[in-house]
Simulated assay, not measured.
Amino acid sequence: MKLYYSPGACSLAAHIILNEINVDFDLVRVDLKTHKTEKDVDYYCINPKGYVPALEINPGLILTENVAILPFLAQHDPKQDLIPPSGLGRAKVLEWLGYLNSELHDAYAVFFGAPLDAPAKEKAYAEIDRLLKYIDQAIADSDNDYLVDDNFGPADAYLFVLTNWSNLIKHDLSPYTHVNNIRNKVAARQSVQIAMRDEGLIA
Rank of each mutant, 00 (worst) to 15 (best):
L104K: 08
K133Y: 08
A157L: 10
N144T: 14
K121C: 02
A138R: 15
N101S: 15
H105R: 12
A91P: 00
D81T: 08
W96R: 10
Y108W: 04
V93N: 09
K121Y: 02
P84A: 15
A157P: 00
L97T: 06
D145G: 12
V148Q: 09
E127F: 03
A109Q: 14
D141Y: 11
P119R: 12
R130S: 08
L132F: 04
E122L: 07
E103L: 10
Y99D: 06
G87W: 11
A114C: 02
S102N: 10
D145F: 10
A126T: 02
L147F: 12
P154Y: 15
P119G: 05
F112C: 01
A140N: 07
L94S: 06
L131W: 01
P85W: 13
Y125D: 05
N144Q: 14
K133G: 03
A157S: 10
I135F: 13
F112A: 01
I83T: 03
N144S: 15
E103S: 14
I135Q: 05
A114M: 10
P119N: 05
L82Y: 06
R90G: 01
K92D: 07
F112I: 02
R90T: 02
D149K: 10
Y134R: 13
E122C: 01
V110P: 00
L116S: 01
D145Y: 11
L100D: 04
L97G: 04
N144I: 09
A126M: 03
G113L: 05
A124M: 01
R90Y: 12
D129N: 06
A114S: 06
L104Y: 08
L131C: 01
S86E: 13
P115K: 03
D143A: 13
L82D: 06
G89W: 11
A114D: 10
Y99C: 07
I135N: 03
L88A: 10
D156C: 06
Y146I: 09
L147W: 13
K92V: 11
G87N: 07
V110G: 00
P154F: 15
A126F: 04
Y125C: 04
N151V: 04
L100I: 08
K123M: 05
A120T: 03
I83N: 04
L132I: 05
L100K: 07
L88Q: 09
D141A: 14
S102E: 09
A157M: 09
Y146H: 08
S86G: 00
Q137E: 14
A107Q: 11
I128P: 01
